[in-house]
Structure formats: C-alpha cells, structure tokens
C-alpha cells in the first residue's frame, strides 16, 4: 500500500520530467532535468527495496553523470537545434510500440505479487543457500561476486573496454590553435580556486568521501555497497578535488598513468582470482578451493574480486573525467 502511494508520486514525476527533457531545446536544462530524473529514479529504487541499486544510482547519477554531461556540453554546444520536421513518423512509431507494450503488460503480474514467475525460479535458492554456502548477510553481494561471478567479470571488462574507447577518442591532445592565452583560458575553465567557500568545504569533504568509499567497499558484505559503488564514490572524491583545485592539480593527485594502471590492475586481479582457483584444483572463479574451509574461501574470493571491481570502476571514472577535463575547446 505504502509502496504504491510512493510509487504513484515518484513515477508520475518521472514521466513529467522525462517529457520536459524531451521538449526542452536548451541542453543545459536537459542535463539538469536528467539530474532530477536520476534522483527520482534512485528514490524509487529505494522504495522498491533495492538498496544496493539505489546507492549505485545515487553515486553515479548525482556525482558523476552530471559532471560528465556538463564537461561534454562545454566541449560541444549548449543548444539543441533540431529542426521540427519529420516528427510524425517517430511519434507514430513510438506510440504504436508503446501501445503494444502497455497491452502486453496487462498479462504481467502486479507489483509485489509473491507468486510471480520471477520469484519462483532461482531467487529462492539464492536466498536460502547464501547463509549456508557463502555466509555473507548481503545476498546481492553474494550473487554478484560469487554465484554470478562470470557475469560480473563480463561487466568489468565492458567498463574496461569503454574506458579504452574514451582514451582512444580523447586521449591525445593537440596544441590549441586559437589565440586566447593559455593561462587565461586555464584560469577560467580549469578550477574554482578563487572561490574561497567551495574551495575550503570541497577540499575538506574529499577525505570523507574517499573514507566513505572505503567503508562502502569493505562493508559491502554486511550492508548495501560493494566494489561498484565504492569505486564510483572514490572517483567522485577525486572529481570533486579536480573541480575545486583544477584539472592540473587533480592529475597531480591521481596521475593519468596511475588511473589507467588501476583500471588494468583491477581487471587483472579479478581474472587472476579465477585463474588461482583453477590452479588450486577448482573451476574458474570457484572460490571454495582458495582456503581450507569452503566458506572462508568464498569470503576471501569475494573480498579480492570486490577490491578488483572497485579499482577498475574508480580508475575508469577518474580516467574518463580526466580525458574530458583535459580536452580544451578547439
């Protein structure tokens, strides 16, 4: 009941904001509204009992997504100059498809139906066996890191590949060819150092954000959290530092070679756990053989691969941010 009331509010807001994003011509407005969109989404995830997902969406949506979009807007254009022609075909296509999907949803089980098919298949097994086989309180972490470890490995490599793509596209910076002085340009576009209050408060909060990231990393077995959220949080701390003190100092704090090494090292750590478990007589990513006690082996494996995930995600986010911030306008 409560869930339905909250969902009604949040989802209606979601649709209204989405329509507004679609209609606006100012891309800056669209980015701001998509910030609201992701906040509503995170609140909605929390209402729907998905604490881990809400934490991820919170960190990504509030901390990183807006910054990346604004960085891209600064390098491209602020206004959407799409001509208003030819909108009938897309409108008809999408509304027809939407009608079909809505028609199909009448067959779907209602929200929270315990007899729905999703709740009958493997989920009860995960919930039942996690305390016995893996013994970590957070079932999401157990499924993520152990039961579906292959899947997560794949995701880590997708993130890794995306990072390589961004580096390949934005990595090399050619010298500027216009006549605005480099120093003047840097001063205006690079940092907030002459704003006293943001500088003091921002720099003061960076250690707390990184500390909280580490807490989320190592508390992920017991509460909402894990490598993905922790990596994004640490990266958000570094991004905050780079915004306040300027990209140059940000790159002194976390050099680009270091963040790219972090990306590779994380993926390597994850894979090497799998190889180690193969060498010790198990299957790939079967952590039970890593220690004498299978449950301890699982704990060890989860700890190490979560660390790998955290390193990769933090490295990827920092590398992407640096790639955007270093790219002057030309």
């Amino acid at each position: 009941m409560m869930t339905i009331v909250f969902s009604l509010f949040l989802l209606t807001m979601l649709v209204i904001v989405a329509v507004a994003i679609l209609r606006t011509e100012n891309l800056f407005t669209a980015v701001m509204l998509s910030g609201i969109f992701s906040l509503i989404m995170a609140a909605n995830f929390f209402v729907l009992d998905a604490a881990d997902v809400a934490l991820t969406e919170a960190v990504i949506g509030a901390g990183i997504s807006t910054v990346l979009f604004l960085g891209a807007l600064a390098l491209t254009a602020e206004y959407d100059r799409s001509p208003p022609v030819g909108t009938w075909v897309p409108l008809l296509t999408s509304s027809a498809l939407g009608g079909v999907i809505i028609f199909a949803t009448f067959q779907a089980p209602r929200l929270g139906d315990p007899s729905a098919i999703v709740h009958q298949h493997v989920a009860p097994w995960y919930l039942e066996k996690t305390p016995e086989l893996i013994d970590v309180p957070n079932v999401v972490t157990a499924v993520l890191a152990s039961f579906r470890g292959y899947d997560t490995l794949g995701e880590v490599f997708v993130v890794f590949t995306a990072c390589i793509g961004v580096m390949a596209l934005l990595g090399r910076v050619r010298p500027r060819r216009d006549s605005i002085k480099e120093g003047e340009f840097k001063k205006a576009t690079d940092n907030l150092r002459h704003h006293l209050i943001p500088r003091v408060v921002g720099k003061m909060l960076v250690p707390f954000i990184v500390l909280f990231g580490l807490y989320v990393q190592f508390h992920g077995d017991f509460g909402p959290g894990g490598g993905f959220q922790a990596g994004a949080l640490v990266a958000a701390g570094v991004i905050l530092y780079s915004l306040v003190e300027g990209g140059v100092r940000g790159r002194e704090l976390v050099p680009e070679w270091f963040s790219s090494v972090l990306v590779a090292l994380g993926a390597f750590t994850y894979t090497s756990v799998g190889v180690a478990s193969m060498l010790m007589g198990g299957r790939f990513l079967d952590y039970s053989v890593l220690a004498h006690d299978p449950v301890h082996g699982q704990h060890l494996g989860i700890l190490v691969i979560e660390a790998g995930v955290g390193m990769t995600v933090a490295g990827v986010m920092i590398t992407i941010f640096h790639a955007f911030s270093r790219r002057g306008i030309r």
Partner: peptide, 22 residues
Amino acid sequence: ANPLPQVLILTAIVVGISTTAL
C-alpha cells in the same frame, strides 16, 4: 526482495555510465 534483478541492474548502471561517456 528478489536479489537477482538487483544484481543485474547494479552492474548495468555502471556499464551504462561508461557507455554514455564513450
């Protein structure tokens, strides 16, 4: 609640922001 969709979406959000950055 069912942990499986949460696991899938948790990773998908991070992948989503990386592909958006690309």
